[in-house]
Design a protein around this nucleic acid. Structure first.
Lengths: 143, 143
DNA sequence: ACTCTATGTAACATATATAGTTACAATAGG
DNA sequence: CCTATTGTAACTATATATGTTACATAGAGT
């Protein structure tokens, strides 16, 4: 399990903005809603803004989606907040290849299946849009 | 990226045992080979043993594979060393569902696509056996 | 122009997981 | 019994993420 919760928080932030519980979503309101601190939200804001998923205004405040909910997939959000290089899921030990014939080859050999696995995972994330998620939220709220 | 390197180390340990660079592989020899500490190797030993992938003897020492290399997949190894509950890749913020209508639903809604993505990833890992990896190592060594 | 409000960001504290290390008891082969 | 190795506890170090305070900066409305 990843040690960070940014991804799920980012999804929730986007849902909050899309559903517009408040007509002026601010980092403070969102923070209260997702049970964290406003600065944490702003840090995620920055990542989502850099990924061109949201617009943010200073001063009067308020943020909005930069795309339609059906144009934002869970993969887009993942790409926005995942900091690991190339979003690699598995990590190699430093100096692995230094002292051993096996070690010197294994990283290169494992790269291919690891890459394939990552692509398979990301394709699934790409199949789900923010619209899908919000539809399910609203369905649950109504029922 | 995961913050741990146990998985790739475990794969390397198994390769080392299979190829039997030494006719008596010990935690100390393997540790030197993968550039880490013997206790780190023993901790991974324990996980591989609990998963019934290797046999370990005290005293005289030495360990061996409990299955053929074509019966051990990268998924088996992953299952052996991944400590996160159900090997969930994505983590939810604590108390996420406490204070918000969206938050109270979102965890449940995201579980399904996350689960699908995880399965897709694991299926790819399940397609590669230790035999495949070792074949590639030996191919590289020869050429 | 002034004021208010919210963002942007630095700085520091805290929490957690991992990895490295030392030490030593327990165990099994010879 | 001796020796080598595992099993494991205990501690340290490190990295990453998160929580928090503080304050400069910017933009909307008056």
């Amino acid at each position: 399990m990843r040690t960070n919760t940014r991804y799920t928080e980012a999804i929730q932030i986007l849902c909050y903005i899309a559903i517009k519980q408040s007509n002026l979503p601010t980092s403070d309101k969102i923070a209260k809603s997702i049970n964290t601190n406003a600065v944490v939200v702003r840090r995620i804001f920055k990542m989502l803004k850099d990924a061109e998923l949201i617009n943010i205004k200073r001063g009067y405040g308020g943020c909005s989606l930069k795309k339609e909910t059906n144009e934002i997939t869970l993969l887009d959000v993942y790409k926005a907040v995942e900091t690991a290089e190339n979003r690699q899921i598995f990590k190699f030990h430093e100096g692995l290849s230094a002292s051993c014939v096996i070690g010197s080859k294994i990283e290169e050999i494992l790269k291919e299946p690891f890459q394939e696995a990552q692509i398979a995972l990301e394709e699934k994330l790409n199949n789900v849009t923010l619209e899908n998620v919000i539809f399910n939220i609203e369905k649950q709220i109504i029922s």
